[in-house]
């Protein structure tokens, strides 16, 4: 189990450098590009560029997956009966996810610092983009936890990655209305797509939306987890 985790972390780190090496010295990515995203001009070859951008996300979601599923299967049963409250246990898993996504965001930002000079510079919106990246990453990992109560964690991983990819693709290509961007929420990961670079009022609306959906998902998760039978 620990070996798998180490291997996943290794591949995640590798994917971050893979991302940087494919973006550095190209004028298609802003500084802190993992959170700011592609420049608006990127339309041709977008499919490949998005793969570069989203590859770390697959490892992040994969690393964080299984936390709920593992509690209800095999060894998890021995752990779960040693707790008194399912609600507290669920919130503990979510809290662990928040901590891990914060660490991941800080790690990615730190790794990007030496390479930022080779990318397009931004005058504003970096901090806002990083905050939004962290919040949406959190939302995606919470969604992963909820999906695990219904489907196999690996299937949930694939569903989330495809959804994230399609969302980013559609928003990058088309002029999508703000309310539609809410449906395609994984695209809000990136500052160029969530208005934090432009830094207008929709950014705050998106922040409120992401927080509300996260709270709603946690409440749904607690309800479902309490009703879930463990065999």
């Amino acid at each position: 189990m620990r070996r798998n985790k180490i291997l996943l972390i290794f591949f995640f780190v590798l994917s971050v450098f893979f991302q940087i090496s494919n973006f550095a010295n190209r004028d298609k990515l802003y500084e802190f590009g993992f959170a700011v995203g592609l420049t608006e001009e990127v339309k041709s070859g977008l499919d490949i560029m998005l793969i570069y951008l989203l590859v770390p996300l697959t490892f992040i979601v994969f690393m964080m997956s299984g936390s709920i599923h593992n509690l209800t299967h095999g060894y998890g049963k021995l752990q779960i009966i040693r707790h008194y409250s399912k609600t507290k246990l669920f919130l503990k898993c979510i809290g662990k996810g928040v901590f891990e996504t914060a660490l991941i965001t800080i790690f990615q930002a730190t790794v990007y610092i030496p390479f930022n000079s080779t990318m397009l510079s931004l005058k504003c919106g970096i901090v806002q983009s990083l905050i939004m990246y962290f919040l949406v990453l959190n939302l995606i990992t919470t969604l992963q936890c909820i999906l695990e109560l219904y489907i196999n964690p690996h299937i949930a991983n694939i569903v989330l990655f495809i959804y994230s990819y399609i969302s980013c693709y559609i928003v990058q290509i088309f002029s999508v209305a703000p309310f539609l961007r809410i449906l395609l929420f994984p695209s809000l990961l990136f500052g160029t797509l969530n208005s934090s670079v432009a830094f207008n009022n929709t950014y705050y609306l998106y922040i409120i939306f992401v927080l509300l959906i996260n709270i709603l998902l946690i409440l749904i998760g607690i309800y479902k987890f309490k009703k879930t039978d463990i065999f």
């Binding site: 095999g74 060894y75 049963k77 021995l78 707790h83 008194y84 409250s85 399912k86 609600t87």
Partner: peptide
């Protein structure tokens, strides 16, 4: 409470 306090269980599909 969700689970009874201080209970030991041996049941199928519990792997250490």
């Amino acid at each position: 409470v969700s689970f009874p306090p201080n209970t030991g269980i041996v049941i199928e599909n519990m792997t250490l």
